[in-house]
């Protein structure tokens, strides 16, 4: 089963990479970009027996650093 984990910086944590991307977009002439936050997408192909709680445990123990990051788990369905 395909599962997506989105790891994003917590609100209020300065995101230098997002800022640099924001500047670059403005440099390209794109207007109306109010803010940019960069994060990570981690795709897991999981055995159906892996529970939601286990995925959450994976996030807390390794995939995200909860000091600075939030995570969101999205169960996508059977792997293609």
């Amino acid at each position: 089963m395909k599962t997506r984990v989105y790891v994003t910086l917590k609100n209020g944590v300065l995101d230098p990479q997002g800022k640099a991307i924001h500047h670059a977009l403005e440099g390209l002439g794109f207007s109306g970009v109010n803010d940019v936050r960069a994060g990570k997408l981690i795709e897991l192909d999981l055995d159906p027996k892996v529970s939601d709680a286990e995925v959450e445990d994976m996030c807390r123990k390794l995939l995200a650093n909860t000091v600075i990051e939030n995570f969101k788990i999205e169960r996508v369905g059977a792997a293609a």
């Binding site: 944590v13 230098p16 990479q17 000091v67």
Partner: peptide, 11 residues
């Protein structure tokens, strides 16, 4: 140790 080390502010 507490906290985290992130990308330098100036990149």
């Amino acid at each position: 140790l507490p906290g985290a080390l992130m990308r330098n502010a100036g990149l």
